[in-house]
Design a protein around this nucleic acid. Structure first.
Lengths: 146, 146
DNA sequence: TATGTAAATGATAAATTATTTCACTTAGAA
DNA sequence: TTCTAAGTGAAATAATTTATCATTTACATA
C-alpha cells in the first residue's frame, strides 16, 4: 500500500518540519492520484484552489518529501522531475506511457546480479533504478478503438 | 564493446543524415570517454577547439544520436539529459556516482518478472530501465584516503 | 490563550536549460 | 562544378530551477 496523507504528514513532523497549509495541499495532490506529477503540474492544479501559493514552495516541498523518501522520482516516461507518492519498503514502478498511471511492485531480486557485477567490476554498488514502461489496460483499449 | 566513432558515423549516414564536422566532433567527444555527458558539458569541451560551434547543434546532434540508439540516456546520478555512447544489443549501465564513469552489462533476466507483472496488472510492457549506481574502484580509494 | 522565535513563504530576480525561427552555409548527389 | 535539401549559428524566446530577502506563520513555551 501507498502512504496516506496522514502518514506523510506524521513523518514530516517527526522530522521537525512544520506543517503549513501549503505543504498539506501539495501532499494531498500527490497522494490523490496514482499518476506522477511534475512541479509545474502540481502548481497549476493547486493554484486553482489556492491562488496565493508560490511555485517555489512546490519545489521546496517536493524536495523535502523526496529526501524523506515519502515520494519517489520517476524517469521512464515524462519529465525527470516527476514524482509519485511512495510505498513503504523497497519497491519499483510500472508506468503507463500514455496516462502516467504508476503501479508499484516488489521482488526485483537483483541481489545475485548485483553481487556478480560488483565482483566483476570492483564497484561498490549502492543502489539501483528499475522501472518498467508500458500501456495500462485502459490505454490499450483506447489505442485499439482509435 | 561500445560503438566506435566510425560505426556511429556509418550508421548516421545510412539513415540519410549528412556528416558535418560539427556532428563528427560531438560524436568524437561522446566516444572518447566512458563517462556520461550533458549537452552543456559537451558544448564547453568542444567549444575550446571549435569556437564556432553552436550549443543548438549539440542539442540537435544528441537528439538524433539518441533516436538512432547510438547513444544512451542515463538517469541515476547526474543530469537527466546525460548521454553515453551505446553498445549494440540490449544492455544496461553501472554508473559511478562520483566520477560519472559508466560500465555496460548485459543479462538482466527480467523476462520472468516482466511476465508475471504483465499478468497481474494487465499492462502491456514495452521496456524497462535498469541502472546500478555505486562507486568505482578508483573513487573508493580516493574516498578512503580523504 | 498569548507570546517569542525559528522556520517557512512569496515576490522578485537571476541563472540555467531547452526550443523556435530564419537567413545563410554546406555536404554530397548528379 | 553546380544544385539543393539538409544543416548551422545567431538571436529571441520559453521553460525550468535556484537564490535572496523582507514578511508571515507554526508551534513550543509560558
Amino acid at each position: 500500500m501507498r502512504l496516506t496523507e496522514k502518514e506523510v504528514v506524521t513523518i514530516l513532523r517527526q522530522h521537525g518540519y512544520k506543517l503549513t497549509w501549503q505543504r498539506r495541499v501539495v501532499i494531498r495532490t500527490v497522494v490523490s492520484t496514482q499518476d506522477h506529477h511534475t512541479p509545474t503540474a502540481i502548481y497549476e492544479k493547486v493554484h486553482q484552489d489556492y491562488p496565493n501559493i508560490g511555485l517555489v514552495t512546490i519545489y521546496r516541498t517536493l524536495e523535502i518529501l523526496a529526501r524523506l523518501n515519502l515520494i519517489c522520482e520517476l524517469h521512464a516516461g515524462g519529465s525527470c522531475h516527476s514524482y509519485t507518492i511512495a510505498a513503504p519498503g523497497h519497491h519499483h514502478h510500472l508506468i503507463c506511457s500514455n496516462c502516467g498511471r504508476v503501479v508499484d511492485f516488489t521482488g526485483c531480486e537483483l541481489e545475485e546480479l548485483q553481487q556478480s557485477l560488483s565482483k566483476e567490476t570492483g564497484f561498490r554498488i549502492d543502489g539501483h533504478l528499475l522501472e518498467f514502461i508500458g500501456l495500462c489496460q485502459t490505454c490499450q483499449k483506447e489505442t485499439i478503438t482509435k
